[in-house]
Simulated scan of single mutants.
Amino acid sequence: MSNNNIVIREITKRDDEQVAQVIRNVLIEFGVPKVGTAYADKSLDTMTETYSGSKSTYYVIDYEGRIIGGAGIAPLDNFDGNVCELQKMYFLPEARGRGLGSLMMDACLKKAKEFGFEKCYLETMPYMDDARKLYSKSGFENLEQPLGDTGHYSCNVWMIKNL
């Protein structure tokens, strides 16, 4: 697989089913609980609609018409402040180790700045080592407790970055 055939673009309705499957497959691969995580989010099956609001967007990694990863930005739920959340950033094995995570992170953070957010927050799991390395490399720092209320109570690593 060549990076020349890979496109990072905004999600479209025809991507919804593939994106939901990518996210669920990655969560199963990593043994993530099905409750208290993105796995249980009702929005997984309607991602285009979920990210159609103002100050929200979701990007996919399209390899010759097949979705192999994605990530989004949206206002942080149940939080009073100008903070967005990096959401549902997952990649299939064939997308990993190719620099696509950094490209996706750059696209999401650029869009967050365009939306006017001051900070970006995320939640993850402690054993998602490669993801946590990418987040740290991108300037995210650990928090002692969560912000807002995303409903992802099984995620117990919280990070934030000034934009």
Rank of each mutant, 00 (worst) to 15 (best):
T37H: 00
T12M: 11
D15I: 13
A74R: 15
K88G: 01
I61G: 02
D80P: 00
M104Y: 01
Y121G: 06
F140G: 04
V60N: 06
L27W: 03
M125L: 12
S154T: 00
C108I: 01
K133T: 06
K110A: 12
G99S: 06
W158T: 02
P146C: 06
I28V: 13
L86C: 00
L44R: 08
N82I: 09
E114V: 09
E10F: 07
K111P: 01
F115T: 12
A74E: 15
F30H: 12
T12E: 14
T48V: 07
T124G: 02
A131H: 05
M47A: 13
L103R: 15
D62W: 02
D106T: 15
G151M: 08
K13F: 00
A112N: 07
G148Q: 08
M47K: 14
I73S: 10
E64G: 01
G69P: 03
H152M: 04
Y153G: 11
A74H: 15
C120L: 11
V83D: 02
R9D: 04
Y51P: 04
M128C: 02
S43K: 05
K111C: 02
Y39W: 11
T150Y: 07
N5F: 12
L143H: 12
D41Y: 13
H152E: 07
S136L: 00
A74M: 15
D45S: 08
I67R: 10
M89V: 04
N162F: 09
G70L: 02
V60D: 06
T12N: 10
Y90W: 06
A107E: 12
K88N: 05
F79S: 03
Y39P: 01
A38K: 04
G139M: 15
D16I: 10
K137V: 09
K119M: 13
L27P: 01
G31W: 10
F140W: 13
Y39S: 04
I61W: 01
G72K: 08
P126D: 03
Q21G: 04
P126S: 02
V157C: 00
D15P: 09
D16L: 12
E144R: 14
Y135K: 13
E17V: 09
G53I: 02
E29T: 11
F79A: 03
